[in-house]
Design a protein around this nucleic acid. Structure first.
Length: 302
DNA sequence: CCAGACGTTGTT
DNA sequence: GTCTGG
DNA sequence: CCAGACGTTGTT
DNA sequence: GTCTGG
């Protein structure tokens, strides 16, 4: 028997049919599932959205992969006056669920230190760390104040995730994925705004985890994706993690897209698409001159 | 009042 | 943890 | 994010 | 297709 798959597929088809019917109804009879969407036209908002939401042929895009070498971390720690209290190894291909270096306030006021945490926020009240699927690797800047998973960490547990740079993917024909590397043009490490939380299991397990705050993309990143990580300057980063809770709302001004000149990008070898590949070649510009740094993105910058 | 559910990301 | 439902 | 796996039975 | 693991 294929009962489970059959049921799932049937449910999928029924839901899609329902969405299509809803779409056609909204088109034909003016029925809308939402009364008002002043900033968009009613068709896209009322009818097309359920259809889109239930149609399984979309591509998802986000900041879900970055790299951090020892040299990047050392420079970041220096820029933030953060103490390095452990050994770190070069990482060229970091994915969610991995352990990552995070800068937080140290025990002495005004001091800062580097800790290791799981990338993928586990709310303190989660039943289990595994209940988090898909993992909360990113936190939208505009959700920090309101979403229960983010609110407490935003108020009390802000942090910085240093990175040498990050990756975004371009979908090519035939389902191929072309990775692009984004990094600072001046060679300095990026400082992602982050939040963290602490989870304690009844069995004594104790997990500190973190998420990267995202915002709208700047022009460069926007050519590939509709979100980008919040990238702070060192003084902003210190303000991000040191600001008192009561002033947290005043931090909103930091959560902006990076200035366009801050970043550059280039294609890298699709070999690094696999998270099992973690070597320096992940960061090398894809062969010949036409793909040298500064090459034009293929998608047009409007 | 308590019990119990709850979170997010993405959406060419 | 916070929020909702009963 | 992408890659890669993905089935079942039994369970005081 | 959907879900998990990294």
């Amino acid at each position: 028997m294929h009962s489970v798959n059959t049921i799932k597929m049937t449910a999928f088809l029924i839901m899609n049919c329902a969405a299509i019917v809803a779409f056609l109804c909204s088109f034909t009879f003016g029925i809308k599932s939402e009364p008002q969407c002043p900033w968009r036209n009613g068709l896209a908002c009322g009818g097309a959205r359920p259809l889109l939401a239930l149609t399984a042929f979309w591509a998802a895009l986000m900041c879900y992969r970055f790299f951090l070498r020892k040299s990047d971390l050392a420079r970041a720690a220096e820029a933030l006056s953060a103490a390095l209290r452990a050994e770190f190894s070069d990482r060229h291909n970091i994915a969610p669920s991995s352990s990552v270096a995070v800068v937080t306030p140290g025990p002495v006021p005004g001091s800062r230190e580097v800790a290791m945490m799981r990338w993928g926020l586990v709310p303190s009240w989660a039943r289990s760390p595994e209940a988090n699927s898909p993992s909360l690797a990113n936190a939208r800047a505009d959700s920090l104040e309101t979403k229960p998973s983010f609110r407490a960490p935003f108020r009390r547990h802000r942090c910085i995730l240093p990175a040498g740079g990050f990756f975004e993917w371009e979908s090519l024909s035939g389902g191929r994925k072309q990775p692009w590397l984004f990094r600072r043009t001046d060679g300095a490490p990026l400082l992602f705004a982050g939040i963290w939380d602490q989870w304690k299991g009844s069995d004594g397990r104790h997990i500190e985890s973190c998420a990267i705050v995202t915002t709208e993309p700047n022009s460069l990143v926007g050519a590939l994706h509709d979100r980008m990580p919040v990238c702070l300057q060192p003084d902003e980063a210190i303000r991000w993690i040191e600001t008192a809770e009561a002033s947290a709302p005043g931090l909103a001004s930091l959560l902006r897209p990076a200035p366009d000149p801050l970043l550059e990008c280039f294609r890298v070898d699709p070999r690094m698409n696999s998270v099992r590949v973690d070597d320096p070649a992940c960061l090398a510009p894809l062969s010949p001159p036409e793909d040298a740094p500064g090459d034009q993105l293929p998608l047009g910058l409007e």
